[in-house]
């Protein structure tokens, strides 16, 4: 330690006095409280949260705002293979309800501006897709080096420093939510805007969704409107038969969506 970095006696006594008198969290927050901005203190406690998302298919207008916002917020490469979130358009024709037509031109980044005439009886709707942040995620189970993990607040994250780029998780994800970042050759995926939600903001896709079709929810917060929403709507998850414990809940999800 250099001479100018060593604390003088007054500082040392002040700091140690604080640590003795206050709890750990209060000590960390102390400087911010004194400055009159206690809300800026690093008081985020991961175990107090359990993040998820609700997506209302009836409200999605396919504008692609979420896809653009996600790429801008997270620096996702502009290739047509790299998406942390994307929008699909499902077309279910009356004579083939089991075989929907699914299209996602450039992930919905530019919207779906081609008008298609399907005739009467076709059911057409948009399905925004995102990492489901599964509670029992297959991708975490297969990672050999512990590079991908579930955080204590229920977000599936990738540690880019540890990732080898072996692609096991890309194959394991039943929802196709992972891609290889061509710049680093490591895996990347939706972080549920972990840098935003830990600061009290919502995700970039929810922030820019004009109709409120997407909503970030905290399932551990008893005051979150999600509980009321889940009770009063037809909620489903994608591929429930995979028992992944998905935490992205869809309202009005058609059975043909997979």
């Amino acid at each position: 330690m250099s001479a100018d970095a060593s604390p003088d006696r007054r500082e040392f006594l002040k700091d140690s006095g604080r640590w003795i008198l206050l709890t750990g969290a209060a000590t960390l927050a102390w400087d911010f409280v004194v400055q009159g901005a206690p809300e800026q203190a690093p008081n985020y406690n991961a175990t107090d949260h359990w993040w998820g998302m609700i997506i209302d298919i009836e409200k999605c207008i396919g504008c692609g705002n979420c896809v653009r916002a996600c790429k801008a917020e997270n620096g996702v490469p502009m290739t047509d293979e790299s998406f942390r979130t994307w929008v699909e358009r499902y077309t279910i024709l009356p004579d083939a309800p089991e075989h929907p037509i699914v299209e996602s031109p450039n992930g919905g980044y530019d919207g779906f501006l081609d008008l298609k005439q399907h005739g009467d009886g076709a059911k057409v709707f948009f399905v925004p897709k995102i990492c489901n942040h599964c509670a029992h995620s297959p991708c975490v189970q297969v990672c050999p080096v512990g590079a991908t993990f579930e955080s204590p607040d229920g977000v599936v994250l990738v540690d880019k420093e540890r990732c080898l780029g072996c692609r096991y998780c890309v194959q394991a994800c039943p929802y196709g939510c992972r891609y290889i970042d061509p710049r680093t050759e490591t895996v990347d995926k939706c972080t549920l805007c972990y840098h935003r939600i830990t600061k009290g903001l919502t995700t970039a896709c929810c922030e820019t969704c004009p109709t409120g079709a997407r909503q970030l929810v905290d399932l551990k917060d008893p005051k979150d409107p999600v509980h009321e929403f889940m009770r009063t709507h037809m909620i489903n998850v994608l591929k429930p038969q995979m028992a992944t414990g998905s935490k992205v809940y869809y309202n009005a999800l058609d059975g043909a969506v997979r």
Partner: peptide, 22 residues
């Protein structure tokens, strides 16, 4: 905390914000 590097949580959370929020 589990089979991962605990420091990764802070590193991921330190990413700069692009959308300021309403």
């Amino acid at each position: 905390y589990g089979f991962y590097r605990a420091g990764a949580l802070k590193e991921i959370a330190a990413q700069p914000i692009t959308y300021a929020g309403r």
